[in-house]
Amino acid sequence: MGYFDVPEIDYTRYTNRQLAAVPLAVLAVALLVLVGWFLAFGTPVDAGIDFTGGTELTIETSTDRADVPAAFDEEPASIQAVQAADDQYIVQFTSTDQEALRDQAESNLEPAAGGDGVVQSVSSTSASFGSQARQTALLGIAVAFVGMSLIAFLLFRTFVPSIAIVISAFSDLVIPLAFMNVAGIPLSLGTVAALLMLIGYSVDSDILLNNHVLRRGGDFYESTYRAMRTGVTMTLTSMAAMLVMAISAYAFGIDLLASIGVILFVGLAADLMNTYMLNLSLLRWYKFEGVNR
């Protein structure tokens, strides 16, 4: 059925240890990246201007990209060209003096032909506003994670399957965070939204797997395969939607949508691994050995 079908993996060939080793190793690497970042830069994840304070300008100019920095007194923190529109750039600064930056842009850069001025959009966050937002965001993530964990325990009311969900959800969060550091995506409001979404999204396949294995009769491997067929299709559909959103939003220069898309894509990919290796090995151990203890 279908042009693609979820392959049946012969789980009997691998021990629980072998199965859990891969996702745990990836998780360990991800945690190492975060710790390394913390030791090197004093913060586990690079925060963007939403959280550190700074100014972002979207400019439309016929001036060459290479000459854009010279227009400003302060060296821009980053310049990104918008793919879908000619001559559009997103320029970030650590300064919050948006009026000065705006004036410099208007007076030193050539407006694009037929445009209505150089500066198309300004977004500026002061440092103290940013640090408040960062605290709020951290609290939001913590509350969401704890809430999700409580629901997991409420749903299954047994320790091992519930903790399996919590562990793989944790890993689903940590891996994209480490990915963000490596790929140079700073933590922004958009990525925080994506991380929260990930908490909600990624446990779906874990719940599905646990439900099939624990609450239905039948052979463990058969239940697992049925859950996988549904779960993998689900996750792949979502990943496809997010990838398309990430690529098109990046091309159009809509940062918010692009970062939500990328983070969810990476997180869901991590979730595939965590659900069907880590969660599964814990479940199998519980089903065959843990229950009898």
Partner: peptide, 20 residues
């Protein structure tokens, strides 16, 4: 069950003031 987790995960954002 899945809906419940999504709602719980996103409810802090709906209440806290985090801009957009």
């Amino acid at each position: 069950a899945a809906a419940a987790t999504t709602i719980i995960a996103l409810s802090p954002l709906a209440v806290l003031s985090l801009g957009d």
